[in-house]
């Protein structure tokens, strides 16, 4: 584990935010989703963001993932300032560096498993073969099935294969097991752990299932738009051992 110098933003640090805020709406109706977040995340870790709904964890994930913009503050991805990027630059940032896994899978219903993965490998710089990515999540036998023909867990694994196929530096997972039962959920977490170990991808998981925290290198607790506590796990649990 690397120690980070917050003033220099050393390269070992994947993300660094300073005074990041996000306000939805205006005037009396304004909702403060993030109220000044200062954070430094080292690369290569599994990081779990925990917190009740509305605490701001998904908002943070969306902003550092380049899906949304903060209202104030700065964000650095390695040596690039995300908060200063244009829309086009953000698009390339997402295309080249980031993978996403969503709670509701968000597969294209009109494309097969393989084609959903191809959707990403098509535009990535150095992607895996779609088949390889699907093998990684244990779906090599279901390449040509449409989302409607796959179970929830299988759909989520296609989504993970789709996210990792471009060999992203960072994988963002928003409630990846939220719609799954415990057995399937564990299988999905195992895949995420495998991705982290074999590809060295930084994995950020947003969840409100506290037990998931057991498998993380680092756990960030969120409440009311702020970081309450950051904990580093001395020992990490295998996903199989997680008490659901």
């Amino acid at each position: 584990m690397t120690n980070v110098d917050p003033t220099t933003g050393s390269l070992a640090c994947v993300y660094r935010t300073e005074g990041l805020t996000k306000v939805y709406g205006e005037g009396p109706a304004a909702v403060h989703a993030l109220r000044g977040v200062d954070l430094a995340l080292p690369g290569g870790e599994i990081v779990v963001l925990l917190g009740p709904s509305g605490s701001g964890k998904s908002t943070l994930l969306n902003i550092i993932g380049g899906l949304d913009r903060g209202t104030d503050g700065t964000i650095w991805f390695r040596d690039q300032e995300l908060s200063a990027m244009s829309d086009a630059e953000l698009t390339h940032y997402r295309r080249d560096n980031v993978g996403f896994v969503f709670q509701f899978y968000n597969l294209m219903p009109s494309l097969t498993a393989r084609e959903n993965v191809e959707l990403v490998t098509e535009i990535a710089k150095d992607p895996m073969e779609p088949e390889e990515a699907l093998a990684l999540v244990g779906l090599h036998a279901r390449l040509d099935h449409f989302p409607a023909q796959l179970s929830g867990g299988e759909q989520q694994r296609v989504a993970i294969a789709r996210a990792v196929a471009k060999r992203p530096r960072v994988l963002f997972c928003d409630e990846p097991t939220g719609a799954l039962d415990s057995t399937t959920g564990r299988a999905v977490l195992k895949v995420l752990k495998g991705v982290n170990e074999t590809l060295g991808t930084t994995v950020l998981i947003v969840t409100h299932a506290a037990a998931t925290a057991g498998m993380a290198h680092r756990v960030i607790h969120f409440a009311d738009g702020k970081i309450r506590k950051i904990r580093e796990n001395e020992t990490r649990l295998d996903p199989d051992k997680i008490d659901w």
Binding site: T91, Y93, R94, N106, M108
Partner: peptide, 16 residues
């Protein structure tokens, strides 16, 4: 709309 959002999340440009 949602599929458009998704494609953009993957890094497809507005033009694409």
């Amino acid at each position: 709309r949602e599929q458009i959002g998704l494609m953009k999340a993957f890094g497809y440009t507005d033009l694409e």
